[in-house]
Every structure is written in C-alpha cells, then in structure tokens.
Design a protein around this nucleic acid. Structure first.
Length: 439
RNA sequence: GGCCCUAUCGUCUAUCGGUUAGGACGUAUCCUUCUCAAGGAUAAAAGCAGAGUUCGACUCUCUGUAGGGUCACCA
C-alpha cells in the first residue's frame, strides 16, 4: 500500500527574535511529523528583503538546534523567487491574476505593476484538523495583491508554491493564520495544486489573554537558554500549551512527547504562558539528569568552588534550585560561606534564651565529638552529634554549630555543612567562634 | 466595525451523555525540623448565561454574553 509520506514545516520569517509562541508551532509540527514517520522541514520566509535579517535567521537555526528540533530539510523562500514568478506568470496567462498599475503606497509616487488575484468571490470551505469545518465568504477579500511585481512575490503566493514544491502535506500553524487560509486556498486551486491538511493551533497567550508578543514581554528562546533553562523542559512545557495526552504524567522527554502526541488532542482555545509552572517543569527535568550532568552544570556556575566540594554539595544545590541560572544569584547568599569563612557574630550565634558561655561550651563539646566522627556522609555525622544535641537541647547545640560554620541564620543543616567542609575546616570555624564567644 | 475562532478551579488541564467533575502549578494550613528549603499530608478553588434534544447534560443543538484573532504593496 502506498501512503504518501507526511511532511510538515515550520515557516518563520526572520524579522525579529522569535519567542515561545513561535517555537511552540515548531514543536507541534515536529511532533506530528515524527510521530508519523514523516519529514519536518524548516523554511525561512524571507520574501520581505527589507525586514529579513541574517542574524534572525541564525537565531532561528540556533534555537531549533538548542531545543533539539532537528529538521530534515531547510529552505529559504527568497531562493525560490524564480518558481514563484513562474507560477505568477501561469496565473496571469490563465487569466486568474492580472497586472495592475498602481501608485506605490509609500508615497514615493512610483507606479508599480502589482499582481492581483482575480477573485470571483466564492465561498471557501476547508476542514481544519483541529477545528473542523471553517467556512469563509471571500467576496469581501476583493482582488487581493499577491505580488509587488512579477518578480517580487508576496506571502500568499510564496507560501502556496513553496508548500507545493516542498511536498508539504500538513500545515500546522498558529490560529492567527486562519484568515489567510481562504486566500491561499483560492490561489492553490487556481494553480491546480493538491490540498494540504490544515491544523490551526490555539494561540499562546500572555497574562492579559492576548496573543503573546515581544511587546508583552515575551522573550526569545535563546534568552531562556542563557538563563539556564533546560531545552528538554522548555520543550516539555511548550508541548503542553494547547495539548495534553491525557493521564496524569506531566514530565516528558522529546521522544516520549513524540510517542504520545495525538493531533486530535490539540485544544481549540488559547492558553496562557505560565512562568511558575515552567519553573517547576524545569526543576523536574533537572532531577531527571544524571549526577554527572548535574555536576558539570553547577560547575559552570560555581567556578570558585573546589571540585571535590561541589561533589559533596551537589544534592543540596539541586534541591535548592529550579534552574541552574538561579546559581548566579543564589551562589552569593546561600552557598558562599562554604568557600568563605563567616564573620562571627556573637549575638546571633547564641540560641534563643541561652547565653554565650553555654554556646561556647556546646561548640567545644561538639568539636570533641566531631574529631572522632565519621565524615563520610551527613548521616554519619548526624549520628555522632544527635545524642549530645538531644541531651542538651537541639536548639542549644545545633543552632550555634550551624551559625559558627555558616554565619547565616538560614542555611542547610549543620551535618551537611560539616560533611562538605571537612573536619579541618570545621574545627577552624568552631575555634574561631569559641574565641569570639569567650572573649 | 466586517469576517473568523474560542469558552471546566487564579493558571495549565482530565472528562469523548450517567463521576463525590480528577490531576498539576500556584496559594493556605499542618506534619517534619536548630533555621531556610526540600519532602509528606490536608484544604480552599471550576463547568459563562438562557433555551432546547434526552430518562439523564460540562459533554449534543441554538441564542445570547464574554474573550481573542484578523482585516498591508508584512509574514
């Protein structure tokens, strides 16, 4: 049995840095193609030579690569102008389009030879894979412009010709393209091309429920990369905006996403981009990483820390952050004391209703215990100290110990600190604290 | 304004005529705890409105309402 291979495409125009709303379309087109063993192609829509910039195109390629959305083919619309012109000519020859001499709208006064599509105003009906039947009366469209001149094709003709020539079978794109579809169908029919299947995705919305846009603060995906987010998390999150496979599993890898993807489960209504949830998803993806990868990641952000210290610190760090980028800020407050001896504050080191001499006494006793303790894990250290702490009041013992070691009112537990610091450093810090307390 | 699309907790969503309307994020409380997190538990929180169809509607139909998209010689 011969079934034609499914081909989808992501067709951004390189006129700016693209945000998640844009790439979300790519994710869906990719998932659909891969799910069906088809091809996913990237087409740079750069027919507008004025606004298209190479740097933006580069950013698109870079972003897709980072996300892991590999495409099978890449095209540049501007390289197909010959083709567009050929079909434009055909349309004119067939009497389905005509050249119209009109004054340019830019006020320059030049007379242009626009190509207008001869629209007889029929009703266009198409079956959207997500929304069902969509019916449009094209009368009020008039004879719309499809090229600025025979050699300067515009969006609609370029899209129709390219999709045909590239063998695109399924067009997954944003809902904002629904109004364009009837025009493109008209052109396509005039050209006699087969009809692709359309699937218009619901929009990604910002907090105010309007279309996500740069103006509303939507960031380029590469910014998320730079902030330390994981591509797998971004992908996972984007896939769940307007799609849900059912079931209660929420964390998916790209491969798993492809596996469960089902075009009939795509929603119709727009969805707000929720930063908090993204943050949570990212944390979950960090937890999924191997310790080797986690270690390398925190090493990049905590360059001043000795490697063996980071190894010990890893579980604590992973537990505290939801994004490796957090380390840029967290590092200075939460973990800095590990490599920088704290300044002893004798007032703060004393627990609630206790006093300096008691704090000092407890520290000295703990030091004695630690000297004999097993430093191989936080747990073994806890065992060495807990009995004493319980006897003398946990607050009385553990608070001064933690303060002496970290100098901070909020930090990880003292056992972990001891474990990470090692016996020598721990003794030095306890001695320092006692000296201040005793004087 | 014309045309088009949409409508379940604050947010993302499950439900494909019969459920105490489920989960997650976030929020609150409690437990754990020397502190902060993390973790565990619990709670509050939704079917836009009105008509139909049906023994029975969140689910199907219609109307209204609300929100959104789009109306270029951009894509």
């Amino acid at each position: 049995m011969v079934t034609s291979k499914i081909v989808t495409r992501f067709a951004p125009s390189p006129t700016g840095l693209l945000h998640m709303g844009n790439y979300r379309t790519a994710v869906f087109a990719y998932m659909f193609a891969k799910k069906n063993g088809g091809k996913f192609i990237l087409r740079i829509e750069d027919t507008d030579r004025e606004r298209s910039k190479k740097e933006y195109e580069d950013n698109i390629v870079e972003s897709l690569e980072w996300l892991g959305l590999s495409y099978d083919e890449k095209y540049r619309q501007s390289e197909h102008v010959e083709s567009h012109t050929k079909y434009l000519q055909k349309l004119i020859n067939d009497g389905k389009a005509y050249i119209s001499k009109e004054e340019a709208k830019d006020g320059s006064g030049v007379i242009r030879e626009l190509v207008r599509f001869k629209n007889n105003g029929q009703t266009v009906i198409f079956e959207d894979a997500i929304r069902g039947k969509i019916e449009t009366d094209t009368k009020d469209l008039g004879d719309f412009v499809i090229a600025k001149s025979i050699s300067e094709p515009l969006f609609h003709i370029a899209v129709v010709v390219d999709d045909y020539e590239e063998g695109v079978t399924h067009i997954l794109r944003g809902e904002d393209h629904i109004p364009n579809t009837p025009r493109q169908i008209l052109i396509r029919e005039a050209l006699g091309f087969p009809q692709p299947i359309y699937a218009h995705l619901p929009l990604v919305l910002s907090e105010d429920r309007t279309k996500l846009s740069k103006r509303k603060g939507a960031l380029p995906v590469t910014d998320y990369r730079d902030m330390g987010y994981l591509p797998s998390a971004i992908l996972n999150f984007m896939a769940f905006i307007g799609f849900n496979p059912g079931g209660e599993k929420e964390i998916f890898t790209l491969d798993e996403l492809v596996e469960v993807f089902d075009i009939t489960k795509i929603h119709k209504g727009g969805a707000i981009f929720n930063k908090e949830k993204l943050s949570w998803v990212n944390k979950e993806h960090i937890k999924l990483q191997s310790v080797d990868v986690q270690l390398k990641s925190i090493e990049r952000h905590m360059k001043d820390y000795p490697e063996d210290m980071l190894k010990k610190l890893l579980p604590t760090v992973i537990e505290k952050i939801s994004n490796y980028g957090d380390l840029a800020t967290v590092d200075n407050t939460e973990f800095r004391f590990f490599i920088k001896r704290p300044v002893v504050d004798v007032e703060k080191i004393v627990w609630k209703n206790s006093n300096k001499s008691e704090a000092s006494q407890n520290l000295k006793s703990v030091k004695g215990l630690l000297l004999k303790a097993d430093f191989s894990s936080p747990d073994s250290l806890k065992q060495s100290i807990m009995e004493y702490a319980e006897k003398n009041g946990k607050g009385n013992v553990l608070w001064p110990l933690r303060m002496a070691l970290s100098g901070q009112e909020k930090s990880v537990d003292p056992f972990t600190i001891c474990y990470v610091l090692g016996v020598e450093e721990v003794v030095i810090r306890i001695d320092n604290a006692c000296q201040s307390l005793d004087s």
